[in-house]
Nucleic acid binder design. Structure first.
Lengths: 222, 222
DNA sequence: CTGGATCCTCAACGATACTG
DNA sequence: CAGTATCGTTGAGGATCCAG
């Protein structure tokens, strides 16, 4: 429980004392996508020891980043969510995601995609989320049995978990969808080679590819 | 040396595998301020075990974030510096600094300020560094026996380590200087109460205080 | 069935000493 | 100065168990 203290009066050092703990960044990522129950966190973080999760949640609660909501009457389930202070970590999560994504080519052996990871990735790719006012498009994105949705409407982009309702276009793909978002694989080729499958108005895929962007780093070594 | 692998094809997970290691964020912070020799890193990171530093440097080199430059002939000293890929972590460091600084009030028992920490803090506070074109001001900032400098010139802000050459104003203060940068302590009061001492054109202090800003979080619990 | 607590093992970390 | 070697300690990993 005694977190590492770096002994420096420094914002980064203080941040490191929190997010430098193992699993903490991924817990925050999952919670940044939406409130979660304990078992949902376990499911979204394959490999996390249950005691580690319990410890981390307690630490994050002590730090004021996470609040556990005990349901009032009919005892259903404890729900964990980011507090307002916890929301302030988002820009850092996004910057780290962007950095990490820059060095990410294809999945390593055994690497998976989770609901939170794809949703967070799409949110980062959306960036500030400015699009023309007259766009009104709903996308569904499926990777494996995971599904997320992207809505471009009223000049803004909204990203969420789960299937879209009445999507204009459903995009089904593997992790290689990243090559499209990195600009390394142009949409027609992606479709032609079967990297992505489209259901619905296929002409909307170009818009998706050009709007959601997380570039590869130009400086990855091997 | 087998870093933690989270098994997820996710930018944040990949980033976490690197910066989630102990001390790594602070090593990157120090290197982001400027190239460093091994002993300088040790000096700037009080408490770091020497073997941990050696291990981290090797890991960061393997990741392509840090390059060690062995001096050519007259054997002087190995120098570590960020690579272009390493530079890409800056936005994440800044976002984390900002987050951590938001929760930072006064120093905890025994916390110190280092050259890299103050320089990094000023750099983050400078933000994008846009100032009016006609400003031409050189500040020296002293905290304890540490000194950094801030130059506002040609519409930009430059922050660096070490004393300023021919400063217009030298600001000497303790860690409470943060209250000024957070907007919680107005400049006249800071001067009047002796929180900061000024040498030079004291009228330039207002400009310093309004330009360099790292706000406190409104949501820190206790 | 959810939300943990407990136990044990081992790899990583921390402290110190020592060397090219 | 720039690390390596050694060793004790801590925290993570993994399985299991328990309470509401």
């Amino acid at each position: 429980m005694t977190n590492q203290h770096y002994g420096q009066f420094c914002g980064l050092a203080r941040a490191a004392e929190i997010v430098g703990q193992r699993w903490t960044l991924l817990i925050l990522r999952d919670l940044s996508v939406g409130p979660r129950r304990y078992s949902e966190l376990v499911a979204g973080l394959p490999g996390i020891p249950t005691n580690t999760l319990a410890t981390r949640l307690k630490e994050l609660e002590d730090e004021g980043l996470v609040a556990r909501t005990v349901p009032p009457a009919g005892e259903r389930s404890v729900v964990y969510a980011l507090t307002p202070r916890g929301e302030e970590v988002r820009p850092a999560l996004d910057a780290l995601s962007r950095f990490g994504a820059g060095g990410m080519r294809s999945p390593r052996e055994g690497e998976i995609v989770t609901s939170a990871s794809i949703t967070a990735a799409l949110r980062v790719a959306a960036g500030e989320g400015e699009v023309p006012e007259d766009w009104d498009t709903v996308y569904g994105v499926r990777v494996g049995d995971i599904e997320a949705h992207v809505i471009m409407r009223d000049g803004r982009i909204t990203v969420g978990e789960g299937p879209a309702e009445r999507p204009d276009l459903v995009i089904t793909a593997g992790p290689q969808i990243r090559d499209v978002m990195a600009g390394e694989l142009d949409p027609p080729t992606a479709v032609a080679t079967g990297v992505v499958q489209l259901e619905g108005d296929a002409s909307l895929f170009d818009r998706f590819a050009e709007t959601l962007r997380v570039p590869y780093s130009e400086h990855v070594p091997a």
